[in-house]
Design a protein around this nucleic acid. Structure first.
Lengths: 160, 160
DNA sequence: GGTCGTGATGTTATCTCATAACACTCCCTC
DNA sequence: GAGGGAGTGTTATGAGATAACATCACGACC
């Protein structure tokens, strides 16, 4: 949303925090016998530094430190890995990707997405609770859920 | 999911039911001063007959009764109208569209999507309930929500 | 230390999903 | 019957994602 008449806060981690998070993620991968390779690390770095949902093609454009773009499969493969590890999430309603904001990756995340400033909060998301009720009645077994609420964050609410 | 080793039920309305639903939708539009034009009616007809989520380009391909395809904007504009009226919903996690299964359009629908047979159940979806709690704590105002649970329906569950 | 298998990457090409832009038509209203 | 707004037809293009295949890096095993 543009022209909303107010400033938007800066988001994303500072470089030192990004490095720390990357190192932690790399260590966790090592314990599981998975490899935090260069492209995976780079894509996670971009997501962490942004701190908000980023479009895949923005990652592709920003990938090279010299301003050179990556090839799409490079970034999409890294994103697939990061999602599988719980280090990143896809926001289907935005066709965008965001770094997971939890220390320990939770499955079943839910998101509050501000349509004004783009800020995204990842919330604990047993939000499938009521959903699980309906599902159970129908004999439906839930394996994963996409829960994305759009609206206005506290900073962007006109009243407040 | 293919090769899952069991049959899938047929879905979708019979022609008579489709006609009835189309006429009802048209009447409702008339009351609100909106026009159920030919392309809108045709796209809704295809969605109702399918009874499950349909990709936009499948609608485009099936649009002409003589096997001729529509132009993309024709179908996308009709879908936009149907969504606005609550007659259809977009399933973001599938990039697909489905006819609304409620007589009276509810806002804030939630979906149970079987990854095996493609069947989709639209459930009452106060499923934002717990979500609303987290949102309130953060001062976040929810305007609309995407709630899509993937899993296996009763017919496709291996146990059952 | 070799070699073998697996998983990851690089590269090209293509496929799917969605919309911008503009001309034209239909219908309602005055 | 002129004017305005909503809707449609058409062309072109932008944006999102993946298929296919060659090559490369790494660990396991002998």
């Amino acid at each position: 949303m543009d022209g909303c008449g107010h400033d938007h806060a800066q988001m994303g981690m500072k470089p030192a925090a990004v490095r720390a998070a990357l190192d932690a993620a790399e260590a966790a991968c090592g314990l599981d016998g998975e490899r935090m390779t260069a492209p995976r690390r780079r894509v996670l770095e971009l997501l962490l530094a942004a701190g908000e949902p980023v479009k895949a093609y923005d990652l592709i454009a920003a990938y090279g430190r010299d301003g050179e773009a990556a090839k799409p499969p490079t970034v999409y493969r890294a994103l697939e890995f990061l999602e599988r590890r719980g280090l990143a999430h896809r926001i289907a309603s935005l066709s965008a990707y965001v770094a997971c904001s939890h220390d320990r990756a939770e499955h079943a995340a839910a998101f509050l997405i501000c349509d004004c400033c783009g800020a995204t909060a990842e919330v604990p998301a047993g939000a499938g609770a009521q959903l699980a009720g309906s599902a159970g009645d129908l004999g439906f077994v839930i394996q994963r859920a996409t829960v994305e609420a759009h609206g206005l964050c506290a900073r962007c609410r006109p009243d407040a």
